[in-house]
Structures are given as structure tokens and as C-alpha cells.
Computed example of a mutant assay.
Amino acid sequence: MQLKTFNVYNNSNKAVHDAYDMLTAKIHINNNEKKLKTFALASCNPKEGKTSLAISLAISIAHSGWKVLLVDADMRKPTNEKRLNQESQLGLSEYLSGKIELNEGICETNITNLTYLSCGMNPNNPVELLCSVRFKQLLEKVQSNYDYVLFDTPALESVADGSIIASHVDAALLVVEAGTTSMKSLKRAKEQLASLGANLTGVVLNKMKRRDYKKYYGSYDYFTKARKTKRSLLGYLKNFLLPPSDQGIPKNF
């Protein structure tokens, strides 16, 4: 294990904590029934809050006493653009390329029970690496060492990486941005995941305004007053996981 310790920002906003606690409870209940351990966090488009959600969800699960590994599986984005920004950090790409062993890439964090595997240096062939035997071996190793493993993946409409990862893990969570992600994008993402046999276990509605989040739990009828495009999207989402509000979720870590 690398000696570097990542200082992960732990948000103190109670509303945010409550939202992630609810999502953690949903995942834990699902895990008891279906024995799900590895999850791909996916989104239709970039900048829908998926990475912030992945980090905060990992913290919430770790706070519940479960041993969690957070994997940055976006090997295409330079490290200086990451939430957990570290220069020249060995990680996923080096392991999949056979340059290091898994324990050489995994790092401790300042959050008890939470460890982190960075994306590593930018490879030329991320799809080839994700389709390799080494990726299957990675899944086998982490399932025996961790209670939960979260893969933060690239946007589905940008590259194929997220779909490939989702097809190999136990379940996928699709993160959508309230009032922004279109129904067309959502349906296309669902079909894309289904075509590869991915288990889409739920959708997380992200970036809700605080007032909307409070009213959400009072009644779904609140959203019937929204404009048509938003109403159709929310109507589709209510069959999935309850949404955490990102009011107060940190934009920088």
C-alpha cells in the first residue's frame, strides 16, 4: 500500500448527511437481499455530480462501519482535474497494465474504513485494459477484501468505459442531475446498460434544491406542478432509489 494518505473532505451539512444515510441504507438493504458488493457509479453526461456523489457515498458507507474501496475508474481525465487530485499517483491503469500489484496502488484516506485507488497515469488503451483478465482479477480481489467497492466511471455518452465496468460489477447506480438530464439521455443510458447485461439497480436524483428535497419527502404530488419535461423525468425516477440532495455538497475536495 502506498504511504500517501488522501485527505477526503467530509461535508458537515446535516441535510446532506441525512440524504446519503438514506441512500446508504437503501444500498445496504439491497445488499442483504442480493449480496451486492461492487457498484459502478454512472451518469449520462459529464458534470452531473457523479464524482462528488461517489466520494460522499463512500464516506457515508464507511461511517457505518463497512470497509469501502473507492476506485477512480476514469483513466481518460488528467489527475489535475480530479476531486482527489494527486500528481503522478500510481493506480488503476498501472495495475491493469501489469506494472504494479493492487496493494501498491491502494492508498489510505483520513476517513476510517475508506481506502482509495486512483485512476493512475493516462493510458492509451483504457477500453482494452477494462476488457482484460487483470480487470476480472481486480474484481475478485476486492470482493474478498472489502464490504463495498465503488467505481467512479466516465459519463456513458462520452466513452464506452462506464458501460464496460457496469457490465462486470454487481450493480450500477445511474446519477442524473435534477432539471438538467433529459428523458432522452436517461432512456438511452438505460438501454446502453441493458444491452451489455448491466444490473441497473437504481437512479439517484442529484443536485436538488433544498426546498425541493424537503417537499419531495412530503409528497410526490409536489412535482406535478413542475413543467412538463421535468415532471416526466421525475415520474420515471420515483420508481428507483430515493435521491440525495446535493445542497451543500462540496464542489472542491
Rank of each mutant, 00 (worst) to 15 (best):
V68A: 12
G98F: 08
K230W: 03
K209M: 12
V127C: 09
S88A: 13
L130K: 00
N124Y: 09
L114W: 02
A40W: 00
K35F: 04
T229A: 12
G120N: 03
L129C: 06
Q143W: 01
L174F: 04
S132H: 08
A62T: 10
L193A: 10
R188I: 08
A171Y: 00
Y148K: 13
N13M: 09
E191W: 06
D246Y: 09
L90C: 08
R210S: 10
I111Y: 05
S158T: 15
H28E: 13
W66S: 11
V204H: 02
V68E: 10
Q86I: 10
K26Y: 07
Y148I: 13
T24I: 05
Q2H: 06
Q2K: 14
M75N: 02
G197H: 04
L174I: 10
T180N: 08
L96F: 04
I249E: 05
Y95G: 04
S97W: 04
L200R: 06
A194V: 09
V68M: 12
K209V: 08
L92A: 05
K215H: 10
G162H: 01
S118P: 14
E108M: 12
E33P: 00
K184V: 05
L129E: 01
P243E: 09
V203T: 12
Y95I: 11
L205Q: 07
Q86T: 11
K209P: 03
D221R: 13
A62P: 07
L139M: 11
T51M: 09
F151E: 00
L90K: 12
M22C: 07
S64Q: 15
Y95T: 07
L117E: 02
Q86M: 13
L129G: 01
T79N: 14
I100S: 02
N103W: 05
Q137D: 14
